[in-house]
Design a protein around this nucleic acid. Structure first.
Length: 923
RNA sequence: GGGAGCUUAGCUCAGUUGGUUCAGAGCACCUGCCUUACAAGCAGGGGGUCACUGGUUCGAGUCCAGUAGUUCCCACCA
């Protein structure tokens, strides 16, 4: 410490003191900070959440084995094995966790099975990309090495998402974690394929498929997104063979496909082209002659009314080709470049050729027009490459028969879709279902168990190569066949052809249907997922369920909204509009985040998550998560309050007992309400109920009612009651906010080892005394009205007031006198028979309250009452009219009529009081 | 092109077979409070012609028809 005073004894002494003083200051502030850490007014979720998850996992409390209790089973929609947690997962898994935790506390043996999906095309694309960084294509390293790479990838990243779910608090039975390409699971998948083949439901055929040139595989109709894409409509002139100077002009958006044309089609009744019947046209540039055919598919209004027919590259053209026995010329290579069959532009990408051929046609004088034209183009969901319709040999599953029981199940309510509006979409899809293309030209997946014999076209289908050999020997009558003579189909199964077995195969229900787990846990109870995969996955699981178990795979399908940003766009990584959920958890806690995402998320509606676009992680802000965090903080502070109270042996006051009784009943009522919400899957409503129960009723009313004066102790009995009620609210909140409720549960009383809140049982709600709720509610109205009166008149809440009450229920008010005094800071309450001078007045129902005022504006008082009279008179008139209507009396239910009568008499009583008050003022 | 849904407060949504003093909740907003649990809080308050038009009914946010806007699904014209 430097000091500018001269160096003498005094200043030395002073300096010394300063040093000491600063040291003391430091020490004090250190103590304070330690102290404030302990009793921080802010709840800090980070460490607490990690601590409890670790304990839960160590105690293995989420593991389930069959026992005497009823089972409640949820299977997780398996995330992609290489996936990372996004907002959709947060919503989906929070909902599942809420259901599972709640059921556990309702006495069910609740099991939530976790796992991952191998996601063939998505994962393969990632591995291909990784190889590309080393300048390798998958063909360079071969199938075996490629799969090694893929498994290595899976080992490295496969568990990440499941660990992220732990941060969220997901109470999965991790010992049962499954994988759609796990060994046992795969056996089930292959078995089902073989079985479907045996049943004659699987066939192999040449079909027009959606070809993804980037992934070089067929993708299903469901994996193609159609988007309006600006392009051009090219008008191309085809010379007519043998008619010099005569042309037929067609319009196309894909001029490169003229190389694959095998006909020109015109409408048979189109007068303009009668002279072309029976002629042939020459394809520009390559001069191949193609017939001009007649087909009424052609729309005479579109373009020139002439249609080029390209059976290999257009679905409709393919159909026309079949009708007219046209040859099929495929000019596209799997990678989207032009094949040799095209004769020109060989090896060039289709989009380059489109530009080039346009120029060349123009140069040849055969491009009549090129207009701007926006049309719908299909894009691969996985790679976003433009889809090319292409003919190829694929495996298909006949769906029509399989779909029938699955449709009936949903229509008859054996499987319930929530919300029910999705039943229409479901029905439409199921009645128009098409055969399912099962094969994918990929390596990462379940290789199709079909074996070709000696390179020929004959094949056998069998679960193993050895079985296949036996079958091959039998069918070919050639006992000398060897394993080497069999070549397995190189294609793998569509991912959904394994995940459609998920609810069955996680319990090995295909190959060992008698096992205890399958018998106990299947059918599962609730599937929670987004409506975007209703057809991909949900419908197919229902199909597989009935086909392979004869039972529904699940009772309920809870379809939640998709998370969108403020502009209504679906959140996705590629748009960069999704916050990283782990950042949210860091900032608001898992509890806060869970509440944040649950609050605005009623079933089946899209959820607009209020986070600005492309925001930096540290700026992440969401009013919903903030609300969740604030709620956690509120709970935390209520806990701090209770924990800080000193007790004494004094008995509970009357007010204490009243408050305790009221709170018990209030919790009972809330339980019934919450039960109802859960039964109807209104989880955000259930959350709102517990939120209000805790915040408004427990904190704002109950705690305020029993709170001792500063410095005074609380009755030990009262405190014990308050703790028990606190515990009940923690149980109710626990499914939504597992961490803070555990922390407080453990803090409220000494617990034995392993006594976790989620293992406790909820006491069912039971309405015992409705009267106290009604009475208390009236007192709340009185208190609110008087507070508003104080506010309006500018009477400070610290200023004590006097209350005069004019009521026919003096006993009731006497009972609650202590409550009124405490909440209203009232000196005394006096019952009166008529208006008190020098007071303002207010009315709650038929009760009238007068509060002394320094100056009273009589005219304003009168005006206020007159207004109330006008309102009540209008109301009475309306009700009287209703009651004097015979048709109302005759037609309306008795209860409704009674209620109207009650309303009328209440109204009339109130009117009488108002009129009397007015009269008194006028005297 | 076909089908389904939605439209209630500034925002996100409830509103059960038509009938409570029904027009609600949460958030946001406004006013007053740093009141010894909590300013991430407390107390109070304002705010909506229930998209529009017509119909059924004693009675319509609720049922029916049409219109407009909007979202999704299916199909897809070269």
């Amino acid at each position: 410490m430097r000091c500018s005073f001269p160096q003498n004894a005094v200043t030395l002494a002073f300096n010394f003191r300063m040093e000491e003083f600063l040291l003391l200051l430091f020490f004090v502030s250190f103590i304070q900070s330690v102290n404030s850490m302990e009793i921080s007014t802010k709840y800090t979720p980070g460490d607490i959440e990690d601590k409890w998850y670790k304990k839960w996992e160590e105690a293995n409390i989420f593991a389930s084995t069959p026992d005497d209790r009823p089972a409640y089973t949820v299977v997780i929609p398996p995330p992609n094995v290489t996936g990372m947690l996004h907002m959709g997962h947060i919503l989906d898994n929070t909902l599942q966790d809420v259901l599972i935790r709640r059921k556990r506390m309702e006495g069910f043996n609740a099991l939530w099975v976790p796992g991952t999906d191998h996601a063939s095309i998505a994962t393969e694309a990632k591995v291909v990309k990784k190889l590309a960084k080393r300048n390798l294509a998958k063909e360079d390293i071969g199938r075996e090495a490629f799969l090694k790479e893929a498994y290595a990838w899976k080992e490295e990243y496969g568990g990440i998402i499941l660990h992220q779910l732990r941060k969220l608090g997901a109470s999965c039975d991790w010992t049962r974690t499954d994988f759609t390409m796990g060994e046992a699971y795969s056996e089930e998948v292959i078995q089902v394929f073989c079985d479907l083949f045996e049943k004659g439901l699987i066939y192999r055929g040449i079909r027009m498929v959606n070809w993804d040139p980037a992934a070089q595989t067929a993708v299903s109709d469901e994996e193609v997104n159609h988007k309006d894409t600006p392009g051009h409509l090219y008008h191309i002139r085809y010379p007519i063979e043998g008619m010099e100077g005569e042309y037929v002009t067609i319009a196309t958006t894909r001029p490169e496909t003229i190389l694959a044309d095998t006909a020109i089609a015109i409408h048979p009744e189109d007068d303009r082209y009668q002279h072309l019947h029976g002629k042939k046209a020459l394809i520009p540039l390559i001069n191949r002659a193609i017939p001009i055919i007649l087909d009424d598919y052609v729309d005479r209004e579109f373009g020139t009314g002439c249609l080029k027919v390209t059976p290999a590259h257009d679905v409709n053209d393919y159909e026309i080709g079949l009708r007219h026995q046209l040859p099929v010329i495929d000019v596209l290579n799997p990678d989207g470049t032009i094949a040799e069959a095209g004769q020109l532009y060989i090896g060039l990408d289709r989009f380059r050729v489109r530009k080039q051929i346009s120029k060349d046609l123009n140069a040849a004088g055969l491009l009549a027009d090129k207009e701007n034209y926006t049309h719908s183009v299909g894009y691969s969901e996985r790679t976003d490459a433009a889809i090319e319709p292409r003919l190829s040999m694929q495996w298909f599953l006949k769906m029509e028969q399989l779909a029938k029981p699955a449709l009936e199940a949903v229509e008859q309510g054996d499987v319930t879709l929530i919300p029910g509006k999705f039943i229409n979409t479901y029905r439409h899809w199921m009645t128009n279902i098409r055969d399912w293309c099962l094969s994918r030209q990929l390596w990462w997946g379940h290789q199709i168990p079909a074996y070709y014999i000696q390179g020929g076209h004959d094949f056998v289908v069998a679960a193993t190569k050895e079985e296949a050999l036996e079958k091959a020997k039998a069918t070919t009558n050639n006992p000398s066949l060897r394993l080497e003579d069999l070549k397995q189909d190189p294609d793998v199964l569509d991912t959904w052809a394994s995940s459609w077995l998920w609810p069955i195969s996680v319990f090995r229900g295909i190959l060992s249907p008698d096992n205890e787990d399958f018998q106990y846990y299947y059918p599962t109870d609730t599937l929670v997922t987004g409506p975007d995969i209703l057809f991909f996955w949900v419908a197919r699981m229902i199909i597989a369920g009935y086909e392979y178990t004869g039972k529904r795979p699940f009772k309920n399908v809870y379809l939640h909204g998709l998370i969108r940003d403020k502009k209504g766009k679906k959140m996705s990584k590629s748009l960069g509009n999704s916050p990283n959920p782990l950042d949210l958890i860091d900032k608001y806690g898992a509890d806060g985040t869970r509440v944040g995402i649950m609050l605005p998320s009623p079933a089946g509606n899209d959820l607009i998550f209020d986070t600005p676009l492309n925001i930096a992680a540290e700026d992440l802000d969401s009013k919903y998560c903030e609300q969740g965090r604030n709620f956690a903080n509120k709970i935390w502070n209520a806990f701090r309050l209770i924990r800080g109270w000193e007790t004494s042996d004094i008995p509970s006051s009357e007010l204490d007992m009243l408050a305790l009784e009221w709170m018990r009943e209030r919790i009972n009522a809330a339980k019934l309400e919450i039960d109802d919400h859960f039964q109807k899957f209104r989880l955000s409503d259930a959350l709102m109920s517990v939120y209000k129960l805790k915040w408004d009723e427990y904190c704002s009313w109950f705690l305020e009612a029993i709170k001792p004066e500063y410095g005074s102790p609380i009755s030990a009995t009262t405190l014990q009651g308050a703790i028990e009620l606190f515990e009940e609210t923690m149980q109710l909140i626990h499914p939504f906010m597992p961490f803070i409720t555990e922390e407080i549960w453990q803090g409220l009383q000494d617990r034995s080892e392993g006594a976790f809140i989620n293992l406790t049982q909820l006491i069912p709600g039971e309405q015992k005394d409705a009267a106290i709720l009604k009475e208390f509610s009236l007192m709340q109205d009185v208190i609110t009205a008087v507070r508003a009166f104080r506010n309006e008149k500018g009477i400070s809440f610290k200023e004590s007031i006097q209350l005069y009450i004019k009521t026919e229920e003096e006993d009731l008010f006497s009972t609650y006198q202590a409550l009124l005094k405490k909440f209203l800071l009232t000196e005394s309450i006096e019952f009166v028979q008529e208006k008190v001078e020098q007071t303002g007045s207010l009315r709650i129902g038929t009760h009238e309250i007068f509060i002394p005022l320094a100056s009273v504006d009589v005219e304003a008082e009168k005006e206020k009452i007159r207004k109330e009279i006008v309102y009540i008179e209008g109301f009475i008139q309306k009700t009287q009219k209703k009651l004097s209507n015979e048709r109302f009396i005759n037609n309306a239910p008795a209860a409704v009529v009674d209620k109207e009568r009650k309303k009328l008499s209440d109204g009339e009583a109130k009117l009488a009081i108002l009129q009397q008050s007015l009269q008194e003022l006028e005297e």
